[in-house]
Design a protein around this nucleic acid. Structure first.
Length: 480
RNA sequence: GCCCUCGUAGUCUAAUGGUUAGGACACGGCCCUUUCAAGGCUGCGAUAGGAGUCCGAUUCUCCUCGAGGGCACCA
C-alpha cells in the first residue's frame, strides 16, 4: 500500500515549486490507489502562524489537492503537527542514547566555532572532532549532574550510503563525508532531518517524493532510519523549478506563489496542468489534461531529471485556452469571489444574464481573468470606451463615417429578434449595400459597438446588445 | 573548498547504438475568416565541448566546461 505525504512548512502562500511537489505526491497516491497525507512542518514557530497556515491551506485547496489523512483530517498516526510530536521525538532520542547509537555532546558553540575556524585555516572540510564521542559514563553523569547543556549527536558508522532514487537511480555517498551530526539541540528540540525521519517512519510513508534540494541530506536521513531500525522508504527527488535566469525562482522574479497566480487571474486547472508538465511528460504528445486523466497517466518514470525554467508565457497561453472553454457561469462565479471590487465596478447591478452574455462574448480573447473586465464592460455598459487610437481612427475615417451613416439611416432594417440566421444573413448582406472591402466595412462597426477593432463577431454583438443601445452607440461613434 | 545532481532549439519536453532528432510555447509566413482569438498548414531553431568504445554515439565510458543543490544547535 502506497503512502505518500506532503509536509509543508506553513510559512504563507505555497511556492509553485512546493505546489508541484504536492501535486506529484497527490497524483502518485491517486494513481497507485494509495494514501496521501498532509503533515505540518511547523517547528519554525516564528513563521508558522495561524494566518500562514490558513494561506497555505487556501492555496492547496484552490489547487484542488485534497488529502486523505493528516492535519485537520486525523488518522491513525497523529498528531500531524510536528510541534505536537515532541514526546515522540524524545522517546526515540532516548532509545538512541540507551543503545549508544547517539551520544551527548557537551561542546559549547564556542568550541565548535573554534574547530571550524581551524579546519578553515588548514583548508580541510570541517567535521566534528569527536571530542565527546567517547566520554565515560561517570563523566557524562557528572556533567549532567552539574547541569551542563548538551546536544545529541548521532554516531555515524563507517559505511557508504547508497540512496536508491526512483528518478535518479543509485546515488552513492562516501562515509567519510559525514560527521556525527546533531539530531537534538541544547533546548531539546530536534533538528529537521531527525524529526522528518521519525515522522515518516512512524506514519509508514512508503515513497518520499520531494524536491532535489533534499537529495544531499538523504544519506543523513538514511543513517537515522538505520540507527532507529526503521525501513528506509523509496525516494524520488524532483528537480527544482528555475527562474528565466536559471537561478532559484524567488520573489524578486515576480509572482512565485500559488496565491500570486490566483490574484493575477489564473485558473487552478491551468496552473495545475502547466505545473505538471514542468518536469513530467506523458507517453504521447498530449498537453491538456483533466485531473482524472493525470491520475490515470502519472508515473514517476515520466518525471525528468533536469531543472525546469518557469515560463509564464506558456502558462498564460494555457490559461487563455482554459478560459475559452470554461462556461461563462463558472467564470462569473470566480470573478465575483476573487475580484469582487472590480466586478462591482464593472458590472454593478447588471442582470446576471447580461453579464454571462458579455463573458461568453469575450472570454476567448482574455489571457487572465481581469482582462475580462476591460473586455466585457463595453458589452455591458451604456457608453463604449474606445480602447486605442487606431480603433478611433477607424470610425473617424471617411469609410467609417460611410458605414456608420448607412447603418443609422437604415437602422430599421436590422432584423432584431428574428434569430441567429437572419442576423447573420443581414450582416453578410451589408457587403452588397456598402461597397467597401470587408475590413473597412466591419471594423468601424465593431469599434462603434465594442470599442475595439478586435473582439467578438459582429453578428454576436448585434444579437447580444439591446437594440436601443446599438443605435445610440452607432450614433455616438458617428458623431466623433 | 568538499560532496551530489543535471546538461536535446530562447523555454517546456519526446525519442533512438543506425531514417529528414518528434511535439508544445514564443517568433515569422500562408490558409480559413467580417477582426482578434481559436483551428489547419508552414518556416526559423537543438543533442554544451573534447576524447574513447563501436562499422556507426545524441544515446555507453572518461575528461572539460556550464548550471543548480547540499555541506548548521534552518526547514
Amino acid at each position: 500500500m502506497v503512502r505518500v505525504r506532503y509536509a509543508p512548512s506553513p510559512t504563507g502562500h505555497i511556492h509553485v515549486g512546493n505546489a508541484r511537489t504536492a501535486i506529484f505526491n497527490y497524483l502518485y497516491a491517486r494513481h497507485e490507489a494509495g494514501t496521501f497525507l498532509m503533515r505540518l512542518d511547523d517547528t519554525d514557530l516564528e513563521r508558522s502562524t495561524e494566518e500562514n497556515i490558513d494561506s497555505m491551506l487556501e492555496d492547496i485547496r484552490w489547487l484542488g489537492v485534497d488529502w486523505d489523512e493528516g492535519y485537520l483530517k486525523g488518522g491513525d498516526y497523529g498528531p500531524y503537527r510536528e510541534t505536537e510530536r515532541k514526546p515522540l521525538y524524545d522517546t526515540y532520542i532516548r532509545q538512541l542514547l540507551d543503545e549508544d547509537k547517539a551520544y551527548r555532546c557537551f561542546c559549547t558553540k564556542g568550541d565548535v566555532e573554534e574547530d571550524r575556524r581551524k579546519a578553515d585555516e588548514e583548508h580541510r572540510a570541517y567535521r566534528y572532532t569527536g571530542r565527546c564521542a567517547h566520554l565515560s559514563q561517570t563523566d557524562v553523569a557528572a556533567r549532567l549532574a552539574n547541569g551542563d547543556p548538551y546536544v545529541v549527536r548521532l554516531r555515524i558508522p563507517a559505511e557508504d550510503v547508497v540512496v536508491h532514487d526512483l528518478i535518479r537511480g543509485e546515488v552513492t555517498f562516501k562515509a567519510e563525508e559525514f560527521d556525527d551530526f546533531v539530531i537534538a539541540r541544547q533546548n531539546g528540540i530536534p533538528i529537521y532531518n531527525y524529526a522528518t525521519v521519525v515522522d515518516d517512519a512512524l506514519m509508514h510513508i512508503t515513497h518520499i517524493i520531494r524536491a532535489e534540494e533534499h537529495l544531499s541530506n538523504t544519506p543523513r536521513q538514511v543513517f537515522i532510519y538505520r540507527a532507529l531500525g526503521f525501513d528506509v522508504p523509496q525516494f524520488a527527488h524532483v528537480s527544482l523549478i528555475l527562474a528565466p535566469d536559471h537561478s532559484k525562482l524567488s520573489k524578486r522574479h515576480g509572482a512565485v506563489s500559488v496565491g500570486d497566480y490566483r490574484l493575477e487571474g489564473y485558473l487552478p486547472e491551468a496552473l495545475v496542468n502547466y505545473l505538471v508538465l514542468l518536469g513530467w511528460s506523458p507517453k504521447d504528445d498530449r498537453e491538456f489534461f483533466t485531473v482524472d486523466e493525470l491520475v490515470k497517466e502519472f508515473t514517476l518514470e515520466g518525471v525528468g531529471k533536469s531543472g525546469a525554467v518557469f515560463d509564464k508565457r506558456k502558462l498564460t497561453w494555457m490559461n487563455h485556452m482554459y478560459l475559452g472553454r470554461k462556461p461563462a457561469a463558472d467564470i462569473a462565479a470566480i470573478l465575483r469571489r476573487d475580484f469582487a471590487k472590480l466586478y462591482e465596478e464593472t458590472f454593478g447591478d447588471t442582470p446576471e444574464g447580461s453579464v454571462l452574455t458579455a463573458i461568453d462574448l469575450t472570454k476567448g480573447n482574455a489571457q487572465v481573468l481581469p482582462d475580462l473586465f476591460a473586455l466585457a464592460r463595453n458589452v455591458v455598459c451604456q457608453e463604449v470606451t474606445i480602447q486605442d487610437e487606431k480603433s478611433r481612427e477607424l470610425v473617424t475615417a471617411p469609410e467609417g463615417k460611410q458605414v456608420l451613416g448607412y447603418l443609422v439611416e437604415h437602422y430599421g432594417d436590422v432584423p432584431f429578434g428574428l434569430g441567429d440566421e437572419a442576423m447573420s444573413h443581414w450582416v453578410e448582406g451589408l457587403r452588397d449595400v456598402v461597397p467597401l472591402p470587408p475590413k473597412k466595412l466591419y471594423h468601424p462597426i465593431r469599434v462603434a459597438l465594442f470599442g475595439a477593432k478586435d473582439g467578438p463577431e459582429i453578428v454576436k454583438l448585434f444579437l447580444a446588445l439591446e437594440p436601443s443601445v446599438i443605435l445610440r452607440r452607432l450614433e455616438r461613434a458617428l458623431a466623433l
